[in-house]
Simulated scan of single mutants.
Amino acid sequence: MISGLVQILLFQSLGELLSKFVLPTLPGPVIGLVLLIIWLVLRKGVNAELAMVADGFSQYFGLLFVPAAVGVVLFLPQLKANALAIVSALVGSVILTIATSAVTVRFLSSKSEGAD
């Protein structure tokens, strides 16, 4: 378990370093996550220690929504004042996400059919 936790912290630290010195516009944890994913793809799998830590973390994801819910209640007047813009942005982003996903799946499925 310690090994899996060390791996996660190592990649987050690498992401923070790259964010500080190379890519200041991206958050360090995001860079670290991308590096971890690349490392796992190159290794072609997740080791047992990392999987155990990830399973442990995933049990507590619900707690991450508590600060967001408090923020919604705290800023309710501002949210009401800007409701149209917020709803428009949410609907637009959902439509763009679905369209982008569809185009990506179509592109990747045509590539895989051509390889067979």
Rank of each mutant, 00 (worst) to 15 (best):
L35E: 02
F61I: 13
A51L: 15
L84Y: 06
P77G: 08
I86H: 03
V34M: 09
V6T: 11
A102P: 00
V105M: 09
N82K: 10
Q78N: 14
T97Q: 11
S109M: 10
K80I: 15
V41F: 07
A115V: 14
S58R: 10
V34S: 04
A115Y: 06
S101I: 13
G28L: 06
I38T: 09
G62A: 08
G15F: 03
V30E: 06
G32R: 00
S112F: 11
A81T: 09
V94A: 11
L26F: 13
L90W: 08
L10F: 12
G32S: 07
L108G: 01
S101L: 15
S13G: 11
T25F: 06
L40A: 10
F21D: 04
T25M: 07
L76K: 08
S3A: 11
L40G: 03
I95A: 15
D55T: 09
P24T: 12
M1S: 12
G71C: 09
L50T: 00
M52Y: 03
S13P: 00
G92I: 05
V66N: 04
L18P: 00
L35C: 05
E16F: 06
V30Q: 05
A48W: 02
L50P: 01
L64T: 14
N82A: 14
A102W: 08
Y60E: 05
L14Q: 02
V6E: 08
L35K: 04
D116A: 14
I95R: 03
A48E: 14
T25S: 09
Q12F: 11
L108V: 14
G56N: 11
L36K: 03
L9A: 14
S88N: 09
L108W: 07
T104H: 06
A99K: 07
F107I: 12
I95N: 03
E113P: 00
Q12E: 08
V91H: 01
F107V: 14
D116I: 12
Q78L: 13
G56M: 07
F107H: 13
A83T: 08
L64W: 06
G15S: 05
I37K: 03
K80S: 07
G56T: 04
L64K: 00
L36Q: 06
F57V: 15
I31A: 01
L14K: 01
L18Y: 01
N47W: 02
V87A: 14
F65V: 12
L10M: 10
